[in-house]
Amino acid sequence: MAMFSRRSKISADMVGDSAMSDVAFLLLIFFIVSTSFPEIGLPLILPSSQGDVKQIKRENVIQVVTARSGAHFINLEMEPTELPQIKVLLKERLAENENLIISIETHPEAPYGSMVEVLDSVWVVYDELRLEGIVREKRISLKALGLE
């Protein structure tokens, strides 16, 4: 009888050990499944096609135009502007004017990537301003340049 009770104790311990690795695997798989990579994107609300056309004051709009080559121009200036300068300029204009609308206008044959480049810079500028305590509602408009 004494021998039996000792054996049953040992076997009870062994069951716990063998299930341990299964539990570890289950936890591992659970965390792999639950931490599915979230998608990263730049969200935007498009204007409704039924909406009214509003007149906007010239000083409340800043145009960032992307040419077919992928070069960026601000307010149809003759010389292209590099992205870091665009950021500096947008930041200044946004800080002084809370109604500023950023109009991103892209040539239809320009690569999509150069439009996203601008959109990304605009997001970075809004983020930087928010960190400095200047909260601005995102007013972004996307447009394709007419082929004339």
């Binding site: 998608e39 990263i40 498009l46 409704s48 320009a110 690569p111 990304d120 447009k143 394709a144």
Partner: peptide, 27 residues
């Protein structure tokens, strides 16, 4: 990233007509 922007503009025009105004550009 190298897709022509014109296609995207046409696609967004379609979305506006379908009244699907919430979009996101995956990066």
């Amino acid at each position: 990233a190298n897709a022509p922007y014109g296609v995207m503009d046409d696609a967004m025009e379609q979305l506006k007509r379908a009244n699907a105004l919430s979009v996101s550009f995956t990066t």
